[in-house]
């Protein structure tokens, strides 16, 4: 790994831009993201910026129970995020469907069966500290080149 690759790798950890994707959430997890940007938790110290468009994002935060209709949207938005990228699943819903599992309009599967998930943040809803920790872990995976999308396609890396 030469010097420029090393600097780019460090920059991936130091500048994780996030994009929220609500896949059918009750909004509980999304509300827990907003305190991250407030004075109390101040995610900007870690270089985190919240972006509205997946084109600018490095880390996608996916929250909510997966529904039959949100599956396509998740795949579409995930494909728009430029490599290298990481996915953080927020809360219990993407993992199991939570209390909504078994409902007729709910895809009773884990998010891992739709897109590769790198970090799971448990909780209903997770605490803001836990979400921040999840973002930091995903950023570290991006630095190491160890996110699932990076391991799948090597052409996404600079080398």
């Amino acid at each position: 790994m030469n010097l420029i690759e090393r600097v780019v790798a460090i920059s991936r950890r130091r500048s994780p831009w996030i994009c929220r994707l609500n896949a059918g959430s009750c909004n509980g997890c999304d509300i827990e993201i907003t305190p991250l940007l407030s004075p109390r938790y101040d995610a900007e110290q870690l270089g985190v910026e919240l972006h509205g468009t997946p084109k600018h994002a490095d880390i996608v935060l996916i929250s909510g129970t997966l529904t039959l209709r949100s599956r396509e949207a998740i795949l579409d938005i995930y494909a728009q995020v430029p490599n290298p990228k990481a996915v953080v699943a927020l809360g219990s819903c993407p993992a199991s469907g939570n209390v909504f599992a078994g409902s007729p309009l709910v895809l009773s599967e884990s998010l891992d069966s739709v897109v590769p998930v790198d970090v799971w943040v448990p909780g209903c809803p997770p605490r803001p500290q836990a979400i921040l920790d999840g973002i930091a872990r995903a950023a570290r995976l991006l630095e190491d080149g160890a996110t699932k999308s990076q391991l799948q396609n090597w052409q996404g890396r600079l080398s």
Partner: peptide, 28 residues
């Protein structure tokens, strides 16, 4: 801006890290 809002704010090299990270990303 961060200090005026009562936050700690970004580290000194933040704009440089943002630039370098974007250089290493794919163009869609």
């Amino acid at each position: 801006v961060a200090r005026l809002q009562g936050r700690r704010g970004p580290p000194f090299f933040q704009p440089f890290f943002d630039f370098m990270k974007l250089l290493g990303k794919q163009t869609v």
